[in-house]
Amino acid sequence: MTSLVSNFDEFMDGLWKQNPIFVMVLGMCPTLAVTVSAINSISMGLATTFVLVASCLLVSLLRHAIPKEVRIASYIVIIATFVTVVDYAIQAISLELYEALGAYIKLIVANCILLGRAEAHAAKTPPVAASLNACGMGLGFTLGLLAIGAVREIFGSGMLFGVSLFGPHFQPWVIMVLPPGGFFVLAGWLILFAAIKARNSSQLSSGERALEGGKS
């Protein structure tokens, strides 16, 4: 029972509490580059999730076999392998998607979330927990990308998942599909999260104060 709870915690950790984009602010390169549409964001997010889960699982399985002197080299080789796998898989699924994501699929290998998770978590955790945590992180990353991609697609082209929302006379906000738009939308979400956090903590501290007042 406790293991179930802790596994669930492992999963939720990445999805919300330590969301790679909004809380840890990791992996900004693909975050800003590919989030011009919701579909691109989801594809990129799922590709990263796959690499994350597969590499964390393998790292976790091999964690006793990898000497610590060569661990970084081992992790990078493992991550690069699964990035290559995803690269072929996306080419086989859709060339259009492959063109849209461009070099950023190959650049997943340099995404700091992957090495960070392998080093900080998977190398010290049994396989089930490691892959659950990786899955949560990956889905949290996907969620973050989707939040940015959806806003940019709505403003930048008046569509969501390719479905037109405002009819043919919509005026696209060109800047939203250009790199500055990525920065603006990311900043907007970060402000929102910071505001929620500030409000929660102020409520918490006022609650504590009330408690202390009752005591004295």
Binding site: L62, A65, I66, I78, F82
Partner: peptide, 15 residues
Amino acid sequence: MIRALGLIAAICGII
């Protein structure tokens, strides 16, 4: 070290 790296390289190559 060499054995570990060799093992990983072999697994990755096969994949």
